[in-house]
Design a protein around this nucleic acid. Structure first.
Lengths: 213, 213
DNA sequence: CTATGTGAATTTATTCACAGCA
DNA sequence: TGCTGTGAATAAATTCACATAG
């Protein structure tokens, strides 16, 4: 199945593989079998093998997968090889948490700019990032920042999205519990924390296998 | 298809329906067709009808779905009819953001307790919630709190999970970028913010339809 | 005439089982 | 012998098309 489009569900799992592989790599592990990886990340071994088969065979029968190669492949497919400069809009509680979050590095993201509308915050630094005036969002164009994170209140999310798109951003991670209307050229992923929590009681406490996704 | 198990993918969409229906309800809308709802929440009309058909027919041909009934049904299936008291562990940047977050109410969640290990924070209030000593997590048992949110650093996430489970919690929303090992009786949903962001470059800027999930 | 509800068709994803390589 | 890679089988989800109800 070497030359094939990669199923969406596989793409959804790729970051999980990347996280696991990065973890192993830091532990000094050089290679791992689908069986062992399965135990670590809670994805079936055959699913892992099938997924990996989409990006050419690089596993060694009898041994397993080389972790460095795995990381390289996944990063390539996800277009994470270059560092992605990202702009954060809204430095409230959530925005501050995102600025302080150290987990972005694994995937090559770097919050290169932060914006807020609150005059009292503008000019100050948080987690080493200067907070700029939200009215200056258009400057992203010159700075070649193509990704944006929306961490503003629900009511201003659409306006911010419009400005981001106007400034040339083509991918948005939206934390406002709202659908954002943008051009088809722009990809928006919305994370509604409460919505994820809402699935929890359904699965609790019946005895379904514990899937953690 | 009245008497049937509800597909996982449908369960995943139910909170979206609930959010949309709640929004419409607040706007004073009484009923809506699958067609109009589709435009609002970006899910195909036939998908909506199929999903709704799993919980008995309550739509009126020629008219649409009654919003109050829809909300009732979805809440019932997701077991969101009663208020769910939830305990937050870790009142750092992210934890504070969660405490301040107003979106939980829609789904009936109430952060009824907050814990932190930092002595300087204990005893203080944030967003109206008293911060308690993390060593007192066992008190959740008497307080009948069955859901927990982990917003602590990666390294202590597993320990906190163990204590939560020990205190009788059976559902955990985990924000630490780590798999949490718990008994099969406990459901864990992990949200790794960076992982969601990691899917963004893959979908950008090619012209795929903009799905926002 | 409009909009639901659902069998049937189709597409997509998962799981299996095993041939073949190191 | 151990583990990969993948066709084939199975399962699940989506999409269609239309009979039917208000």
């Amino acid at each position: 199945m070497r030359y094939h489009r990669i199923p969406d569900e596989t793409v959804r799992r790729l970051p999980i593989y990347l996280r696991g592989a990065t973890y192993l790599s830091r532990q000094g592990v050089r290679s791992i079998s689908s069986q062992k990886l399965a135990a670590l990340i809670r994805i079936n071994a055959w699913q892992i093998r099938k997924d990996f088969s989409y990006f050419g065979d690089f596993g060694t029968p009898g041994v397993g997968y080389d972790i460095a190669t795995l990381i390289k492949h996944v990063k390539k497919i996800l277009k994470l090889e270059a560092v992605h400069k990202t702009a954060l809009v809204g430095v409230g509680n959530l925005g501050s948490a995102l600025l302080a979050y150290t987990g972005f590095g694994v995937y090559g993201f770097q919050i290169a700019a932060a914006f807020d509308a609150d005059k009292r915050k503008i000019g100050k630094k948080k987690s080493g990032v200067l907070i700029e005036d939200a009215a200056e969002l258009h400057s992203l164009k010159e700075r070649k920042i193509k990704l944006g994170i929306i961490a503003v209140p629900e009511d201003s999310a659409q306006d911010v999205a419009d400005e981001l798109v106007g400034a040339g951003v083509n991918g948005i991670l939206n934390f406002a519990p709202r659908y954002i209307v943008v051009s088809k050229k722009v990809k928006v992923i919305t994370i509604d924390i409460a919505m994820d929590l809402a699935r929890l009681p359904y699965y609790v406490p019946a005895g379904e296998p514990n899937q953690q996704r």
